[in-house]
Deep mutational scan, measured.
Amino acid sequence: MGFKLLSKLLVYLTASIMAIASPLAFSVDSSGEYPTVSEIPVGEVRLYQIADGVWSHIATQSFDGAVYPSNGLIVRDGDELLLIDTAWGAKNTAALLAEIEKQIGLPVTRAVSTHFHDDRVGGVDVLRAAGVATYASPSTRRLAEVEGNEIPTHSLEGLSSSGDAVRFGPVELFYPGAAHSTDNLIVYVPSASVLYGGCAIYELSRTSAGNVADADLAEWPTSIERIQQHYPEAQFVIPGHGLPGGLDLLKHTTNVVKAHTNRSVVE
């Protein structure tokens, strides 16, 4: 069995187990497998329904001669939608809004960016022009300005110390501490036991640490421990890039980060 097929099978099995364990909360999309990078042309966006009122959005972007996937989250909030992270750029984010209108038909009224990198804030200006209120932590807003990236308009308070959590509509926002970046936030959907790890969490097929220019490698494993301790009931975990899975993604990420750190020390 090929690795790609095995990865998709694991996603399907995880979703099936969740649907059985929580039949009222989960209505997993039966329309197909989780979209992969090879299936999404740059400039297009796919939506994948995880649970009743919960979707991931998947886009792709060219970077350094390669094409990478990027995940975000959409959560229903009454007759409105909360968006977590842009679709990595203005063109993708405009396509995301169009796809949401086509498939869901509810307005996106608020959006949260989970850290300051372009795959999370690139497209904020498109959201703002569409009347979406954009939010991020003060740290993310400051770092985005320093980096020359787009800056969300509103500040999220109460997320300055490791372990801080605040309720934001249908989700809980959690600051686990520094990891992929010093400002990275985690998003949890309690009604569906869905954990969105953003770039602080890796997919299972990833074996290298990737972009760690703004990471705190020493603190990252401790931050992941905080996530595990705060959300032990999480059933569906979405990484910032690639295929979702279960809580095993947290341990896998820790292993990859520690291996990278150990290699760096040896070198």
Rank of each mutant, 00 (worst) to 15 (best):
T86D: 00
A21T: 14
G122D: 10
W220F: 04
P170L: 06
R206Y: 08
S161I: 12
A178D: 06
Y135A: 02
A215R: 04
S160M: 12
S31L: 08
D118H: 05
G123P: 04
D119M: 01
A234G: 05
A19W: 15
Q228W: 10
E203W: 00
L243W: 12
L159S: 03
H230C: 05
R46N: 07
V54L: 06
V265Y: 10
Y196H: 05
L143Q: 10
E80M: 08
R110G: 09
I238D: 00
D79I: 09
P170W: 03
T254A: 09
Q235D: 13
P138H: 07
I20E: 15
G148Y: 07
R206Q: 15
L185R: 03
N255L: 11
I227Y: 01
A213C: 07
G53Q: 10
Q103I: 13
V54E: 01
T182K: 13
V194Q: 00
S137G: 06
G242D: 05
D29A: 11
E33V: 10
G246R: 11
F26K: 15
A234Q: 01
Q103F: 12
E219N: 08
L9E: 14
D85Q: 00
E172D: 08
E33P: 08
D118M: 06
L5C: 10
S27M: 10
S56I: 12
N71V: 02
L159P: 06
F174N: 03
A130F: 10
E203M: 03
E150D: 14
Y188D: 03
L96C: 00
Y231S: 01
V37K: 12
Q103P: 06
P107A: 13
E39W: 12
D119Y: 03
V132C: 02
V265E: 14
A19G: 12
V256C: 02
S16I: 07
S38H: 10
E33F: 07
S56K: 07
G198A: 07
P232F: 11
V171E: 03
I40D: 10
Q61F: 08
E39Y: 14
V266K: 15
Y34N: 12
Q103K: 14
V212K: 06
S139G: 12
T254Y: 12
L9Y: 10
G245W: 03
R110V: 13
Q229M: 13
F116K: 01
E172T: 06
T114V: 01
A66G: 12
A144W: 04
T109Q: 09
P170M: 08
S208Q: 10
H230R: 15
Q235Y: 10
L97M: 08
G197V: 04
A87S: 06
V256T: 05
A51M: 06
